[in-house]
Design a protein around this nucleic acid. Structure first.
Ligand SMILES: [Zn+2]
Ligand SMILES: [Zn+2]
Ligand SMILES: [Zn+2]
Ligand SMILES: [Zn+2]
Lengths: 133, 133
DNA sequence: TACATGGTGTTATATTATAACAATTTAAAT
DNA sequence: ATTTAAATTGTTATAATATAACACCATGTA
């Protein structure tokens, strides 16, 4: 049985950059990514940003907007929805993707005062992680 | 009777920049703000960013993270909580601050899988506004 | 007074991101 | 197989966003 969402074969640059982000325990910034992939032949910011744009578009990674950093997705449903939620520790900067059915249902069904619904959203929670309390 | 939250008397630069943002029908970017206040003697990016930082801190304005832009707050509760929600039109870029008691209660009470609660958050919904549909 | 705190003005610089253009690769469509 | 369109790449240059460092000033207060 086939999966519901389209499969994307990553190109060489996309794969290199995805692998790096996926292995990283913390969100990575674009120029840190650039520095780390220069030995693999990716030399210019644009090469990084183009791969990042595509990876975000297909849901393999997410951008943490408040940090200008990128994290790999491990939640298959994001790859369709572009509906994301994270918790961010304000002390150690640890970022965790939240995958809560309750939360995503609540947000997907939320109506603003014009009765408008939104299938796409980004939520960032801030606080202290377990370790930092 | 006094208000619950601390009153902040804005300094000259803060007031100039707040007034500009407050009058703007759309979120303003830092360098657009700079351009617009140069006639009032604010000449350097840092003067703008310092005022913006303070205004964000005291909740008079909010940063729309996905747009690197700033919008005035008209919701008094944000000034205490730094818990914000916006809807953003992906066509015309109209941004509206959402003030829904239900939503803010839900988010303030949300517990992640470690049982952790977060009083501070930023939520950005994306879609099409009324006019753009 | 002396001290602390926060704001200001200034120059320089760091960080994040895109424009523009030519060449190449890939995957259909004929 | 050949043509075509779409996507990706490589490259140089530049735009847009944000902070570092330092000297100075204003205000409150011990
Ligand atoms: Zn995800
Ligand atoms: Zn932490
Ligand atoms: Zn607000
Ligand atoms: Zn619109």
């Amino acid at each position: 049985m086939k999966t519901m969402h389209k499969e994307h074969t990553l190109t060489k640059n996309q794969q290199i950059i995805f692998d790096l982000i996926d292995k990283s325990p913390e969100p990575m910034k674009a120029y840190s990514i650039l520095f780390n992939v220069q030995k693999k032949g990716i030399k210019a910011p644009l090469q990084v940003y183009r791969a990042l744009d595509k990876l975000v578009e297909i849901g393999k990674i997410h951008k943490i907007e408040s940090r200008n950093a990128f994290i790999a997705c491990h939640n298959s449903s994001c790859q369709v929805a572009n509906a994301t939620a994270f918790s961010i520790c304000e002390v150690c900067e640890k970022v965790t993707e939240i995958s809560s059915v309750g939360l995503s249902k609540y947000l997907a069904n939320f109506k603003d005062k014009d009765g408008m619904k939104y299938s796409k959203y980004n939520l960032e929670f801030f606080g202290l992680c377990k370790k930092c309390r």
